[in-house]
Amino acid sequence: MQYHSPNTFEDAAALAVAAAGVTRFLAGGTDVLVQLRADIITPDTVIDIKNIPGVRDITRHDDGSWTLGVATSGAEMREHVELGLDWPGVVEAMDLIGSTQVQGRATLVGNLCNGSPAADSVPAMVTAGVEFSVTNSEGTRRVAVMDIPAGPGRTHLAQGDVISAVHIPARGARGGDAYLRFIPRTEMDIAVVGCAINLALDAAGVITQASVSLGAVAPTVLRLDEAAEALIGCTLDEATLDKLATAASAACNPISDKRGTIEFRTHVAGVLAKRTAKIAYARAQGVTK
């Protein structure tokens, strides 16, 4: 196994292009090392991107949008008070991954690129409208979250593509997001179902924008556009919540495995959608943080 520690994303991309065999970029390493240790994937080349300047910066731009360095850990996100006020759902989704120890290392980009359908931060990034800078030998382009996952363990990124920044939109007025997952224990599990919802309200509390996403119920993260559409124009009354739950369950295309059954995942997706919506709505109203 070759280990490289370049100082620019361009160099990182060039190293990846030149590498033969299996290449892994190393940010937090909390998935790469597990796979290495368990003999699931032993990369031929590991490219550590943590020595590139700025990879742990959290920046709020004048327009209210955010840029996060790709090696920013979950713990660093959680400790950033303003980020948590703007995007509590994104922060809590990241925070749910693994232990305190894992939080000291794990990153949004790693969670995405690991390609797990159950990745906690991915539904929250989907509903927040997160985009990534992707750098390769031809330059840097912007890619939306939904365009990256290709299936369990796979992404649409090419050899030589390296994610170089995380962009979170401006929060905007009267908005709120939330993420809930179901796990059998209180901590340390992989999501059996994950649900993120991002809402914006008008002054009367009517939902004007909505985004709903589910994790762990299909080969890749789901964005539920019809369920979101059904929320728009409503306050969060019981009938709306029931419609949301039905739509969430209907969208599921899960498998039965050691973590949960098809029946369980489908039912709990609806339960979580309701609960998540209530939290997001309260946050959008400014009732809770």
Partner: peptide, 15 residues
């Protein structure tokens, strides 16, 4: 590592 609690099994020695 640099004051941050981590699992040493999830960090490469070279890091």
């Amino acid at each position: 590592v640099d004051g941050r609690l981590v699992c040493s099994c999830l960090i490469l020695g070279v890091e």
